[in-house]
Amino acid sequence: MLLDVREVAKGYEAGAGRLQVFSDVSFRLDAGEAVALTGESGSGKSTLLHLCAGLDRPDEGQVRLAGQDLAPLDDRARAALRRESVGLVFQQFNLIPSLNVSANLSFQARLAGRADAAWLEQLAARLGLSPLMDRYPEQLSGGQQQRVAIGRALAGRPRLILADEPTGNLDAATGDAVMALLLGLVAETGAGLLMVTHSERLAARLERRLHLAGGGLA
């Protein structure tokens, strides 16, 4: 079992009182499985994704990643787990603007101390980034930036890819192309994928779907 989420609940302090985002959420994700996480705006999709990545802590319940319960881990241990086992893809790309494509692509792998030059070269070629390696993020289009972000997430061969609306900022054609690349590469590496999306069409391309609604999984 790669990801095991059990009876998780999360809420926030709002001005007037506490806003419960969701509760009693449980699901599992196996290695090599690609799962879509859908729901209305504000249903807590990104929040759930953050809990799975160890970026935030649940109010209740348990999140286990690669057999490891995240609850007792401190910031240092969570960070180590993320850099070694998780690849993150954000809607806003979140590339490091002062590093060129090459450095951005290899960044997380180097952070984890396992950069593989051949794999990086292969990734760049697959993602169509080879001619762009010396460019900086500001010199790339949105689609190109997201391809770099996907490459960065996969460069360290993580066990789990967590993607938060990876095509949300791209037009339909570019989004489709990026999605095809992501799914293809995830399948190749045998990683698990949990992807937040608004798009029914994209969700349908994945093996399974989790739908957040009314404060829990529908």
Binding site: A79, L81, R83, V86, F90, N94
Partner: peptide, 16 residues
């Protein structure tokens, strides 16, 4: 700020 957040999200501990 964005870079700090990204670095931490990608696995750099706050102390580091």
């Amino acid at each position: 700020r964005a870079m700090f957040r990204t670095l931490r999200a990608l696995g750099l501990p706050l102390v580091a």
